[in-house]
């Protein structure tokens, strides 16, 4: 295990007009760690995720990433091609709405294959085999590999999105409410899948959710956000079972046994 953090975040701030969406946020993420971010809507979770993954630039602060060659780079100082390469190879981004993470007009198989081709895979048979493999792994009926995702249910679309992200073996995956718009039984299945995949692949992940049960199931560590600030952070079960901050206590007490 590497002792240098994979991701190191310091003093990250982002304002939208007069609203501080993220205010002086810092944390380390190590290999194989899953960090959950919880908090009410509007607390800055998604903005933080978008800053971390270099989708938007913060006003202040740094995000350092340990590249595969061991060098540590400030993600906002990367050149545009470098950043794009990182996003296609080393990082994954699972959006709440699968439509934001999939291409609607191409088949499920092609959606997965596209990521592989972006990292240089050229052999058609091999690409198709790996795409099929991944669709099976996320429990999508492989007989439907040539169908477009828009003909799939929400849960299936979400699984295709996950396959598309994981096929290139990223080291870090950002997820924004990955089980958000799904009904409860579909959610449980997806959660179970995500839990298995992160553990088996030793993935590092940052997962935004407003659902404390999801956070308990998937994350090792938790950050509780409110009004753009982290009010409490720590081991997931500690934060949920022995919350210290008034806001965390309020969150935990307002749900049935998270």
């Amino acid at each position: 295990m590497n002792d240098t953090p994979l991701l190191q975040v310091e003093g990250l701030s982002k304002r939208f007009g007069r609203i501080a969406a993220c205010d002086d946020i810092g944390f380390d993420l190590h290999d194989g760690e899953v960090l959950g971010i919880v908090g009410e809507s509007g607390s800055g979770k998604t903005t933080l995720l978008r800053c971390l993954s270099a989708l938007i630039a913060p006003d202040r602060g740094t995000v350092r990433y340990r590249m595969r060659d061991g060098s540590r780079r400030d993600v906002f100082a990367l050149s545009e091609p470098e950043r794009r390469l990182l996003m296609r190879t080393d990082w994954g981004f699972v959006h709440q709405n699968p439509r934001d993470g999939l291409r609607a007009h191409v088949s499920a198989g092609a959606n997965v294959a596209e990521r592989l081709m972006a990292v240089g895979a050229r052999h058609y048979g091999e690409i198709r085999e790996r795409a099929t493999d991944w669709l099976a792994r996320v429990e999508v009926d492989t007989a439907r590999i040539d169908d477009a995702p828009r003909t799939f249910s929400g849960g299936m679309q979400q699984r295709v999105q996950i396959a598309r992200n994981l096929v290139t073996h990223p080291r870090l995956v950002f997820m924004d409410e990955p089980t958000g718009g799904l009904d409860v039984s579909v959610q449980a299945r997806l959660l179970d899948l995500l839990r298995g995949l992160t553990a088996d692949l030793g993935l590092s992940a940052v997962i935004v959710t407003h659902d404390l049960a999801v956070a308990r199931l998937l994350s090792h560590r938790l950050m509780v956000m409110r009004g753009g600030q982290v009010v409490e952070a720590g081991l997931t079960d500690q934060v949920l079972d022995d919350p210290q901050h008034p806001y965390t206590q309020l969150l935990v007490n307002s749900v049935l046994q998270p």
Partner: peptide, 9 residues
């Protein structure tokens, strides 16, 4: 017991 497990602080 929970303190010893690190579940409570």
């Amino acid at each position: 017991m929970r303190l010893v497990y690190g579940n409570y602080r």
